[in-house]
């Protein structure tokens, strides 16, 4: 309720001021996702030179009062089929995310706490921190300009980590579509300001009032490498419960 009022106030203020601040845009982005929960299948194709690897994952996400809970299960490649992990992320930047991982071959479930954000996700062009939700408060956001992005119009927002050590990146530039408040593309820069990679989000569709991209393509700016993630079978508001996001599900 509190968030809805805040969003309404923001929307009203944007109609008067014409251009919202960077922080306001980020809140608009977050609030544009009105889903309670979401399930999808993610097909990740990682191409480096002429070699391509494929990963197939099922993903479920639940929005909670404190943040998000995500459950993932790998289907491909065959050797890690059935491997699952669970992430509880908190909106409060001072609270560390929790992650549990099940290793079916060894019959073990372990809680992984702490950092590890700079690790590479499944040999892709994405770091673990790229696929984990990042709280708005983790960064300072500055509105730069409004410009055309394809057929749409976008706000360009620069986000810089509040604590430099909290991220591998020096800054991110996000092109946020003014029509649906979703990212059109995100550029990630090194701490010396060099472009490292760019992610493009395409094929947005509306599911129960929320917009979700059907594809994300990330291209590495420094080497011939690309990661293409296709989001399939997106279902929203299936009334998933917190129970589906407990450690019991990993056993």
């Amino acid at each position: 309720m509190k968030k809805s009022v805040f969003t309404l106030a923001l929307l009203l203020s944007t109609s008067v001021q014409a251009v919202p601040t960077g922080l306001e845009i980020m809140h608009l982005v977050e609030d544009s996702d009105r889903s309670h929960d979401m399930t999808q299948i993610m097909l990740m194709k990682i191409r480096r030179g002429d070699v391509e690897l494929k990963r197939l994952m099922k993903s479920e996400t639940l929005r909670t009062a404190k943040g998000r809970k995500t459950f993932m299960q790998f289907e491909k490649p065959a050797e890690i089929r059935g491997t699952r992990f669970l992430i509880w992320s908190d909106d409060n930047p001072d609270v560390e995310d929790d992650m549990w991982i099940s290793l079916p071959n060894s019959g073990l479930v372990r809680r992984i706490s702490g950092s590890g954000k700079q690790g590479v996700f499944m040999r892709s062009d994405l770091l673990n921190e790229d696929i984990q939700p990042r709280a708005i408060e983790d960064d300072t956001h500055v509105y730069l300009r409004t410009e055309a992005c394809g057929e749409n119009e976008c706000y360009v927002v620069e986000s810089t980590p509040v604590r430099p050590d909290s991220s591998f990146y020096g800054k991110r530039l996000a092109w946020v579509r003014t029509d649906i408040f979703q990212a059109d593309r995100i550029e990630r820069y090194s701490k010396q300001g060099r472009l490292l990679k760019t992610s493009w989000y395409t094929g947005y569709k509306n599911y129960a009032g929320s917009w979700f991209a059907s594809e994300m393509v990330t291209k590495n700016a420094l080497k011939d490498s690309e990661t293409r993630v296709s989001y399939r079978k997106i279902e929203v508001n299936r009334n998933l419960t917190a129970q589906a996001f407990s450690q019991q599900r990993l056993k």
């Binding site: 890690i80 060894s106 372990r110 690790g119 590479v120 673990n128």
Partner: peptide, 19 residues
């Protein structure tokens, strides 16, 4: 089976040396 588990654990745990 354990070998595969260990590698997965290492990568998900933020290990950066696999490459």
């Amino acid at each position: 089976a354990k070998l595969i588990d260990y590698l997965f654990l290492y990568e998900m745990g933020g290990g950066t040396m696999l490459d």
